[in-house]
Design a protein around this nucleic acid. Structure first.
Length: 235
DNA sequence: AACCAGGACGTGA
DNA sequence: TCACGTCATGGT
């Protein structure tokens, strides 16, 4: 098959043109301008690829990555706000919360029983890191951290170029008939990484843009009916 | 009133 | 390995 065009990169360019920089990962805990709305969801610090910087900011990304599992960011963000309200958005303080307080704080994000455990597990792991960047395989051994969460943490908390694949990614690209919908996580991830330069801002924006795009065209069945990307695909 | 949300885990075949 | 049930709340 001819490789005259890189469709993976073309789609990225098109999405960026459509929606602009997304400013992920959302952070409530940073000094600077107020959050900026970059899409139908809130972007936070568009074109600032230096964040997170401080220890607590890195930690906030990690906590958010757990809380948003199979849950809208709107609800996950409520849990982050609640934790911040309790002054528990800091590893040592979150560990000191008793489970009932923790659960009631994150209730709005759903799966409170699992996630309360997961949050403490990843928090202990984070403390043990003592400031070092985690290895992917070590992250995956933490209970509650699967492939997407691990890659989200590496990409958005530690700025390591690991492409993040989620259900939207699979839904969009199988609808565009570029992959089979049963494709494995690692294979789909490899498709992106092999067609893009190993660049953290590009990886960060691409995943965020796919989420933004999916929220517009892929959140109700039948998925992707009016997807403007379809015109790029037809030969 | 169903369906979906920025998944992961445990189980049985 | 792999398909499937389970986890839970809240928005549309």
């Amino acid at each position: 098959m001819s490789e005259s065009v890189n469709q993976i990169y073309e789609i990225y360019q098109q999405l960026y043109h459509l929606y602009g920089p997304q400013g992920w990962w959302p952070l409530i805990n940073f000094k600077g301008k107020n959050p900026i709305k970059t899409g139908i969801n809130q972007g936070y610090h568009p074109l600032n690829y230096d964040l997170p910087v401080e220890r607590n900011q890195i930690y906030e990304v990690i906590i958010g990555a757990i809380l948003t599992q199979n849950t809208s960011w709107l609800q996950a963000n409520g849990a982050v706000q609640n934790l911040n309200q309790l002054d528990a958005l800091e590893p040592e303080k979150l560990l000191q919360l008793d489970d009932e307080k923790l659960k009631s704080a994150i209730r709005c994000a759903g799966f409170l029983n699992q996630k309360s455990t997961y949050l403490k597990e990843i928090t202990r792991f984070f403390i043990e890191l003592n400031g070092r960047t985690p290895v992917r395989d070590d992250l995956l051994q933490v209970k509650g951290v699967g492939p997407e969460t691990a890659d989200s943490i590496l990409l958005y908390a530690y700025k390591i170029p690991e492409f993040v694949v989620d259900t939207y990614t699979r839904r969009i690209f199988s609808h565009l008939k570029m992959v089979n919908n049963k494709i494995k996580y690692k294979e789909l991830k490899e498709l992106f990484e092999s067609n893009l330069t190993r660049d953290v801002p590009v990886y960060q924006e691409y995943h965020a843009l796919l989420v933004e795009h999916a929220k517009r065209y892929y959140n109700k069945k039948p998925y992707g009916l009016r997807d403007p990307l379809l015109f790029l695909i037809k030969e």
